[in-house]
Nucleic acid binder design. Structure first.
Length: 418
RNA sequence: GUGGGCGUAGCUCAGCUGGUUAGAGCACCUGGUUGUGGCCCAGGAGGCCGUGGGUUCAAGUCCCAUCGCUCACCCCA
């Protein structure tokens, strides 16, 4: 085969595109009801935007971005994540002047050049929300509860919410020293990547999956013990609000998100039904990001969730599928009926019915088989006999009953069936 | 970037220790009904057995290389 889709990309074929559509429809609906408005930003941005926000040392920026220099010499990158782009749009369009709180959501495609595996692709789809403007715990809890509720209401079971606070930057500065002191005696036993992070970003060593490192980290002091007074109050309030909302969570003091901009609250929702890539959703608070992108300091919190993983975790029989549509199939037989058939098709379709016809001029047998295969409930037959009598045969496929209906009462007859 | 598994019909897969014209189920098409679906029956179409090389009288089967897919490491949604 000469051409294939690029590694890590895939085609959404007709047999599952409805499922995608339904999930997206549900998300739009849920978030609108919660007072969030959709924002769409360009699929590519200046490369520096991501370097500045996500962090130059992060894996995403250092080795996974699709970047190129365009003909004008500008360094561009396909979005590897959405938050930086949303915050850029927020600043550029002065959304803070419209309201002190911006509640935004997005659905879109992102790109990272990683080795694909189950639940991970090079072009992948996320939805997420960003609430920019509030520093209070109710906002954290709402974000988390929305993620939790959407995922569970899509019928995904066996999910766990992991929660942590990594404090303010001052807290982390203090804790980093503690961590470095703790790890120093074991430095030689750390993995290559952890050794590199030892100086640049020791916090990231915490969420290692390396068994010997997990062993080393068993007695590690918890970051939550080093939270400042304010951080601690905030974290306790977030937990209280989650209790208020009946959202179950478990504390995971090693949960450190991989993107540099997080502060205080971090969380993720994982599913036991997926493989190694088990995070359906990840997010947290990022109080310093707006400021670091050049605007007035503004607190914010949000999450991002992966569509592919959600669809993988969903049971195949999704209840969101639209049912009880009365499908009509129009059969035309012979050259003499073409014009009339086309007119009838147009009239019925304009009345809002779900109707299609056979564009292959096949035999009546083939067309009826097709009609049956498509799950039509009604088939309309127009042949030369009917032309002479100025009528059509309307057949109920569920019981085989057939009735002759004059041209001018087709619509009213169909309506009477509803 | 590293490692494991797998590449045979559109899909899911058989093909035993190498042995003649490579199979099944599903899906597709046609017919069984001069114009009536499903179920059933009959028939049909569809394969450089991923690609290249090697061993052999003989390769889908063994060896090497290569490409692709997939899972995992790393990291993330």
């Amino acid at each position: 085969m000469k051409f294939r889709s690029i590694k890590g990309t895939y085609d959404v074929l007709p047999n599952i595109s409805d499922k995608w559509k339904n999930v997206e429809f549900y998300i739009h609906q849920y978030l609108s009801r919660a007072g969030y408005s959709e924002i769409r930003t360009p699929i590519f941005e200046n490369t520096d935007l991501f370097k500045r926000s996500v962090g130059e040392d992060s894996d995403v920026v250092s080795k996974e971005m699709y970047s190129w220099i365009d003909q004008g010499g500008t360094d561009l990158t396909l979005k590897p994540e959405y938050t930086a782009s949303v915050v850029r749009a927020y600043i550029q369009n002065n959304l803070n002047s419209i309201s002190p709180i911006s509640k935004l959501y997005y659905i879109g495609d992102l790109f990272r050049r990683e080795r694909p595996q189950k639940g991970r692709y090079r072009q992948f789809r996320q939805f997420g929300i960003e609430a920019i403007g509030s520093k209070y715990s109710e906002q954290d809890a709402e974000i988390i509860s929305i993620a939790w509720n959407i995922i569970s209401e899509l019928g995904i079971q066996d999910i766990t919410l992991n929660l942590n606070s990594i404090g303010s930057s001052e807290t982390r500065k203090k804790y980093k020293q503690v961590l470095i002191e703790y790890l120093k005696p074991n430095f030689d036993q750390l993995s290559e990547s952890s050794k590199k992070r030892f100086n640049s970003n020791p916090l990231r060593i915490l969420d290692t999956k390396n068994k010997s490192e997990i062993e080393i980290l068993k007695q590690v002091p918890k970051i939550t013990e080093y939270l400042s007074k304010e951080d601690e109050v905030h974290f306790n309030e977030v937990q209280q609000r989650l209790d208020d909302l009946n959202i179950p969570f478990s504390l995971d003091t090693n949960l450190v998100r991989g993107l540099d901009y997080y502060t205080r609250t971090t969380f993720e929702i994982v599913s036991s039904k997926l493989g190694a890539q088990d995070a359906l959703c990840g997010g947290g608070r990022y109080d310093k990001l707006v400021e670091s992108l050049g605007a007035k300091s503004t607190p914010a919190v949000g999450f991002a969730a992966g569509f592919e993983r959600i669809l993988l975790a969903m049971d195949n029989d999704n209840e969101l599928v639209e049912k009880n549509i009365k499908k009509i199939y129009l059969i035309g037989l012979g050259d003499k009926v073409r014009s009339t058939m086309t007119k009838i098709l147009g009239q019925i379709r304009n009345e809002g019915f779900y109707i299609e016809f056979d564009p292959l001029r096949r035999s009546i047998k083939s067309q009826l088989r097709e009609s049956n295969k498509l799950g039509s409930s009604i088939t309309i037959i127009l042949g030369e006999k009917e032309m002479e009598e100025q009528c059509v045969q309307i057949k109920d496929l569920s019981n085989g009953n057939q009735q002759s209906v004059p041209f001018d009462s087709i619509i009213s007859y169909l309506k009477s069936l509803k």
